[in-house]
Design a protein around this nucleic acid. Structure first.
Length: 579
RNA sequence: GCCCCGGUAGCUCAGUGGAUAGAGCACUUCUCUCCUAAAGAAGGUGUCGGAGGUUCGAUUCCUCUCCGGGGCACCA
């Protein structure tokens, strides 16, 4: 019996009771309806979800449904709880159901009923924990989106780890997710980047307000290596040389960013170029030589048709205040050039046109001023500002005692962190805190291989399950028997309970976009596994014979390993078979 | 001035209205002739920043307030 099944039973029982009481009231002459529907009170499984009590004396699972519904149906909470409990006790697989406190229903399962979970998990394998709570949703998840004018640094690292894990969790809940990276490859920053690289390639001083950093010099060398006649070109046509250098450096830098992300086990489905938003459309078909408007122009036209665009002082504005923004925003500057925000608007429409329902933006706290205007664009585009757009704001990362980058001055690069700490430790640490929680990287802790470092604690538990598996094979313990009623040790009940919680943890993490819940869960699961391991042997000692208990425990060991693997995968962390 | 996010054990932090608020670290003491001791067991800590309110019940929701961080561009 899983907690989901238990919740389902509870919902049915509660609905029955409400219906019966409704009939009783009707006989009294107050009402004419029959059944739960007639009372207007609906019971869903969410209402009757059971939780794992902190105190083991409170049974395997507890429900507060009686307290939730007592008032609405005019019943005494404890009496209602008692009525529910007496019916729950009759369910096959339930050992007992008791009322406690103000109206909690504490339920204890038969060992066999709980133990059945182990086999189910093994049979479902990697699919255990996946669900369909977000089935049918097409989600666009944009994160990192760092300018392609330099290497990824620590500021991007948290969003890379978090975004990729959010994506995995959403997919586990059945959503169709596209991971997207917006490349700011148009505008002044790119010009500055190009001038800096060209200067470096030609051996000139860094231009005023150009980019500093050793990586610019490296890019300059790479550009020269690829295009040795660049200095000659620069001598005759500086503009052409600049364009060429900028383009080569951009491609090189973007390729390096992609490499870094892959090493970090972070995958993007789409790299979306801002330039494509500025580019004119195709030739129109009337031989005039005219072109269709660029996506930005088209976007402004569309918003104008919706009545949200106006002109003032020679600039084009969008009335975002209609949708709760602090102030209206401009699309064109005085010199006629489109603002960054105009591209943002066109980009949003692109996402909408590509069929995405919810668009999620993962931004740093320094961008929190963007919430209002992005939400307003969603509204202006005719979307539901509650459901179709989500802006997740995360706090920034501090690093204590970090080594500084050798290449880029004060910037700490993702590549340096990877080399120093390793992908697993880094990803796990960054994913185990809520996005809005301040987070500090402690290099010493992340390099340590003790309880200090939770990723090793979890990975060790997994490696242990693998070691048990190997040793069981050698000792002649196989899977030829499965007798769940033998799993009666209290650490086995605890471990089984934890394993049963996993699907709901994944669903909750997806619903709230909080993958840290998976990490915290894994730590609890690992602890339950370690305690079980210390108390219950899978392999007989000495000359003891192999019994069904050992074979059944092997199934439980397999199940624990499977769930740890599944969970770590959601975080993009490996599950080694040996440490 | 306005907006956002924090404030929970000595430290770092969990805790989407429920029972005695938890974990790791730090400190003390135990447990490997037996599946990985990178583990387990035992030991104690809290005005959940403060004050009101909603509720059968508030660390959780609302209002005010104190402290800390961030943000309020015709920049990108």
């Amino acid at each position: 019996m899983t907690p989901q099944e238990l919740a389902s039973h509870l919902a049915r029982i509660l609905a029955d009771i409400i219906a019966e009481r409704g009939e009783g009231a009707a006989e009294g002459g107050d009402r004419s309806g029959t059944g739960a529907a007639a009372t207007g009170i609906e019971v869903t499984e969410a209402d009757t979800a059971v939780e794992r009590p902190k105190n083991r004396e409170h049974g395997d699972w507890a429900s507060n449904a009686a307290m939730k519904f007592a008032k609405r149906i005019g019943a005494n909470p404890r009496e209602l709880a008692q009525e529910i409990a007496s019916r729950v006790a009759g369910i096959d697989g339930v050992a007992k159901a008791e009322v406690a406190g103000p109206g909690f229903i504490n339920i204890t399962l038969d060992a066999a009923s709980a133990g059945e979970t182990a086999r189910r998990i093994v049979e479902q394998g990697a699919a255990y924990g996946t669900g369909d709570s977000l089935r049918g949703e097409r989600i666009n998840l944009e994160f990192v989106s760092a300018n392609p004018t330099g290497p990824l640094h620590m500021g991007h690292t948290r969003w890379a780890a978090l975004g990729d894990s959010i994506s995995r969790v959403l997919r586990a809940a059945g959503a169709e997710v596209t991971n997207e990276y917006y490349i700011n490859d148009a505008g002044a920053q790119m010009d500055k980047f190009g001038r800096s690289v060209l200067a470096a390639a030609l051996g000139e001083d860094t231009p005023e307000d150009g980019y500093p950093g050793e990586y610019i010099s490296e890019l300059g060398r790479k550009v020269i290596a690829e295009q040795p006649d660049l200095p000659d070109l620069a001598a005759v046509d500086r503009g052409a040389a600049l364009e060429l250098a900028q383009e080569l450096a951009y491609r090189q830098q973007l390729a390096e960013i992609k490499d870094s992300l892959e090493r970090f086990n972070v995958h993007f489905d789409v790299f979306f170029s801002e330039r494509t938003l500025h580019a004119p459309g195709d030739l129109v078909g009337d031989d005039s030589g005219d072109r269709a408007p660029s996506p930005i122009e088209a976007a402004i036209d569309r918003l104008r048709e919706q009545g949200h665009v106006f002109e003032d002082h020679g600039a084009i504005w969008v009335r975002t205040t209609d949708f709760g923004d602090d102030k209206d925003r401009v699309f064109t500057r005085g010199n006629g050039i489109y603002t960054y925000f105009a591209a943002d608007a066109a980009y949003y429409l692109s996402k909408k046109d590509r069929g995405f329902g919810e668009k999620i933006y993962l931004l740093g706290a320094d961008h929190h001023g963007y919430i209002g205007r992005l939400t307003a664009i969603a509204g202006a585009a005719g979307d539901d500002t509650e459901k179709d757009i989500t802006v997740l704001i995360g706090q920034l990362v501090n690093l204590d005692g970090a080594r500084l980058s050798k290449r880029a001055g004060n910037i700490i690069e993702l590549d340096d962190l990877l080399e120093w700490l390793g992908s697993d430790a880094l990803r796990y640490w960054l994913a185990r805190y809520p996005a809005d929680s301040p987070l500090a990287l402690d290099g010493e802790k992340l390099r340590s291989r003790t309880n200090d470092n939770p990723v090793f604690y979890v990975q060790y538990a997994h490696a242990r399950t693998c070691a048990v598996d190997r040793n069981a094979a050698a000792a002649g313990v196989d899977r030829s028997a499965f007798a769940p009623e033998l799993l009666t040790h209290e650490t086995e009940a605890e471990l089984l309970g934890k394993l049963q919680e996993y699907p709901r943890v994944v669903a909750g993490a997806a619903e709230l976009r909080e993958p840290h819940r998976v990490a915290r869960y894994l730590e609890e699961l690992a602890a339950a596994f370690h305690r079980w391991y210390d108390n219950c042997r899978v392999i007989p000692q000495g000359d003891e014979p192999v019994e069904d208990l050992h074979r059944t425990r092997l199934w439980l060991n397999d199940a624990a390993g499977q769930v740890i693997r599944n969970g770590l995968d959601l975080l993009g962390v490996s599950a080694p078979e040996r440490l």
